[in-house]
């Protein structure tokens, strides 16, 4: 197993390198001059030239790339052109927020999606299945921003149960932090729950027609043993992979949801950075997201190997 993980990490390195090149080039290809954005009203050529010199913007592209990569490898992602804060520090502030939102959304999604999928599969073509499917379809088609606004109106404005917006670190006030995050996590989670439910349902249906499920029934096992032990344990394999990938997507931040609930997460950070042509921040965030995504992929693969005896013994 350690060798497998090592192999997978080594295998991810070239991907990361390609991502770093793309991230670096992408911002060079974007229209607009960062120096102009930085200089503001100032249009004096001498000042602009000085700024260019200061940020090494006159060097050949390759030199710029390796200087940037060298910095990244030593933890120096550069300085935000806008706020003059180190990019790493900015990421350090926003990452826990996004992680908490992603984790809570995922918990919601799994708590709703997986049981609903199992029920829909077991009660295939009955009223319950139809209801689960309609709810799932609604979850997929209702826009997050609309659901978010409606929830704020209902839960916060009318009922006053939960705070409408903002963020509190769980280290400062744990329960307040959970309460503020509850609604946005629910809004994000419902969409994912629908995806999870559909996949759980089809995975369960596939497994439940397998020969070994017939064997389990022929052994006289109870329905719960047949469904939850023999079937679900097999259906879990694709669900794990899907969940990890969905989580990876959440790490990129949820721009709309963060805007509605004014959560200072990755989504807001990257939108602001793009509007301000704050290249260093864009690079840092995109790279960070890419690493997160690769990491989730790795975790998904390792988990499937752990869960699947056939893959385990193929190592």
């Amino acid at each position: 197993m350690p060798i497998y993980i090592l192999k997978r990490i080594l295998g991810a390195l070239p991907t990361l390198l390609i991502v770093s090149v793309l991230v670096f080039l992408l911002q060079k290809l974007l229209p607009g001059d960062p120096v102009l954005a930085l200089a503001g009203e100032e249009r004096d050529p001498a000042t602009l030239a000085l700024l260019r010199e200061q940020y090494h913007l006159n060097d050949p592209l390759v030199t710029q790339y390796f200087r940037w990569l060298g910095g990244v490898l030593t933890g120096d992602f550069g300085i935000s052109l806008r706020t003059n804060q180190p990019v790493l520090e900015l990421i350090g502030q926003k990452l826990p927020v996004t992680l908490q939102l992603a984790a809570m959304s995922m918990i919601f999604a799994m708590l709703i999606g997986i049981p609903a999928g199992i029920i829909a599969a077991v009660k295939k073509n009955t009223l319950l299945d139809w209801i689960a499917n309609i709810v799932a379809l609604s979850g997929l088609s209702i826009p997050n921003f609309w659901l978010g606004i409606m929830l704020i109106l209902l839960v916060s404005v009318n009922l006053g149960w939960l705070p409408a917006s903002g963020y509190e670190s769980p280290l400062v006030d744990f329960w307040l932090s959970i309460k503020t995050m509850l609604m946005p996590a629910f809004v994000l989670g419902t969409g994912l729950a629908a995806t999870l439910m559909r996949h759980t349902r089809s995975a369960m249906l596939g497994v439940m027609s397998a020969d070994y499920i017939r064997t389990a029934r022929a052994k006289g096992l109870s329905t719960s043993e047949v469904v939850l032990t023999h079937s679900f344990r097999n259906a879990l394999l694709p669900i794990i992979t899907l969940s990890a990938l969905l989580f990876g997507e959440l790490l990129a931040g949820a721009v709309l949801t963060e805007q509605i609930f004014t959560i200072p997460g990755f989504g807001k950070l990257i939108v602001d950075a793009v509007f301000n042509r704050d290249y260093a921040v864009v690079q840092g965030v995109v790279l960070c997201t890419a690493v997160g995504f690769l990491l989730m992929n790795l975790i998904a693969d390792v988990l499937s190997v752990i869960m699947n005896p056939r893959m385990r013994s193929a190592l």
Binding site: Y212, T215, A218, K219, R233, N234, P309, R310
Partner: peptide, 25 residues
């Protein structure tokens, strides 16, 4: 019937390759 299955009447199936659950010993 569940008390009968696997207890009074047991069954062996055709496909040895797929009739056992792959994730349990």
């Amino acid at each position: 019937m569940r008390k009968i299955r696997g207890n009074d009447i047991a069954m062996i199936f055709q496909e040895p390759m797929t009739s056992l659950n792959p994730v349990f010993t």
